[in-house]
Structure formats: structure tokens, C-alpha cells
Design a protein around this nucleic acid. Structure first.
Lengths: 154, 154
DNA sequence: TCTGAAAAGCCCCCCGT
DNA sequence: ACGGGGGGCTTTTCAGA
């Protein structure tokens, strides 16, 4: 993982469909050497996959909400995690520091769907003590492009 | 936007690099008809782009944090939004309901970098009254795959 | 590990159906 | 909307360094 790999990863996050010829220009290498590096980044798991990036509004899930969840202390969390993982509306589910236990990020068509999901799919889970829902009412930024850090080991 | 388009979008979110031949099988159409649909979904903006999906840990940004920000009421928010948009570590920045004004999602190498970013890049912004940082200490789910809703207009 | 060129495969455009 | 075919581009492979 050197400077060239990092440049490749930056380019592929922005546009993963422009082809090896253009990527080779960014990398400053030949096409075949570039292809080799991309293949290795895939094999190592640095590149997990290739995805189409969709417009949320165009597919009917314009409403973005974050739900904080407090689980009863000592309760086994496996069932909760499994349920969240299985729900398509759940984009993220993190165990967090602070007074809450989990933070769940949801994408759903509208407010009614969020209310329903929180009531039926989150609050109904065993061990859930309380929840607090925060709605996004406008986004300045929302990207899946990760910063590619300088310092990474071989 | 019909059932077939939705199936195509689901498949392309999971794997956007498998080629039209395989996608045509999922869609139940010929290759040419499938290609036509993908092209139209791109032209309409439903498909915004094609991205490589990277492993955060592999590129040195394993630490995930959410920072709540309260901006002084009445203060113009443009500068804050611009600053957040320009920062690579900021993956998301949403205006939110509730007692806070903004929710910022960060990805950085470690805790020290998060502390530094909050102090120097968030709290230093004009109009920021207070912040609260929530760290993710484990993720049950983190995906950029959106649910493709049933009901969407033509 | 990179280069360069040849070979194979895929995509795109067009057509007729 | 389907299927086929040709042209062009991209990816892949393979020598050589």
C-alpha cells in the first residue's frame, strides 16, 4: 500500500467505471501494472466490491432518520443486532459510547414509515428500554467516499 | 420505474461489476433491453455513479464518530456547511430535529484524530455553541445499499 | 514489479423481426 | 422488446527486462 495505491483508491471511489486506461493515467503506470494493483487490492479485501450509487429520493427513501436505542444492561444483544442487520431500512447499526447503547441509521419513504419502523421493528425488540428519534431535515453532505489516510502498514 | 428496474437496482447495488449478461438473467430480459434500462437509469439520475466500496480499516480510518453540534440561533449556517463539505473526514452532515442543530459523521484513523478534528475543525467554526461526540465501539451493520421501495412514481 | 503488444472478451450500436 | 452481428474498445495474458 503505497502512494500509487492510495491514488488508485481515491480515483476508484469517485468513479469506478471509467476504465483502466484512464486509471493508469492517474496512477502514472501502464495499463497492465494498474490492472495488477487493482486486482491485488480486491484480493486483499481493501476493495470490497463495486456498487452503483443511487439517488435516495429517486427510489423512494428520501427520509433519513437516526434512532438512539437503550438496551437493558446485561441483556444479550445478539437478537437485536440480528434483527437490525436483517432490516433493509437499517443502513447502519453501531454500538456507541455515552448514555445510549445503539445508534441506528434508517432510510425510509416518509415520516409515517419511520414512526412505524421505530414502533414495530425497534421498540418491539426485547430489551429495548427507550428510544429517541432524530430526523434529518436537510443534508449538507452525504457520501460513502472514505478518506484514504497516509499512514497504513504494508 | 417498474419491478424490473427495481430488481436491476438491487442487483447493481450489490455488485455493479458483474456485466450485462448476468444482469440480464436477474432482470429476465435480453442483454440489449437490460443495457437500455441501465442507461436510462443513469440518464435520469437514479444511478448517480459507480464506486469502489472500500474496507475502512484497510485504509486507515477505522474510527467512526458522530458529533452533534449546536449552532447559535439566527447565525448564518452557510460557512459551517461549506467547511463540513470540504473536510474529507466528514462523511455526512445533516441538519436535524431536536435540541441539536447538526449531526456530523466522521471517519478518522483513531481517537486522537477525532479529538483533534472536533476541537480544530468543528468547535473552531463560528457560531458553534457546544458539541457532543458519540463514538462507535462496534458495528452490527454498515452499508450504503439503499432499500428500493415499492411505491415510486413514473 | 513494470512495460508493451497481442489475444480474448465484452459492450455498444444498429438492424430486422 | 427480442435476438443477432459487426466494430471498437477494454481487459487479460504473456513475453522480456
Amino acid at each position: 500500500m503505497d502512494e500509487i495505491d492510495r491514488n488508485i483508491l481515491v480515483a476508484l471511489q469517485e468513479d469506478g467505471a471509467s476504465g483502466l486506461a484512464e486509471l493508469a493515467k492517474v496512477a502514472g503506470l501502464s495499463v497492465s501494472a494498474t490492472a495488477e494493483r487493482v486486482k491485488r487490492l480486491e484480493e486483499r479485501g481493501t476493495i470490497r466490491g463495486w456498487r452503483a450509487d443511487l439517488d435516495p429520493a429517486a427510489i423512494g427513501c428520501a427520509m433519513l432518520a437516526f434512532v438512539f436505542v437503550e438496551l437493558r444492561a446485561g441483556k444479550d444483544e445478539t437478537a437485536f443486532r440480528t434483527a437490525m442487520r436483517a432490516a433493509e431500512a437499517v443502513l447502519e447499526c453501531h454500538r456507541v459510547t455515552g448514555s445510549w447503547t445503539y445508534l441506528v441509521k434508517l432510510r425510509l419513504p416518509d415520516l409515517a414509515a419511520v414512526e412505524r419502523f421505530v414502533a414495530e421493528d425497534i421498540r418491539a425488540q426485547p430489551g429495548v428500554e427507550r428510544t429517541e428519534t432524530v430526523l434529518a431535515i436537510g443534508s449538507a453532505k452525504e457520501t460513502s467516499i472514505l478518506p484514504v489516510a497516509e499512514a497504513t502498514e504494508e
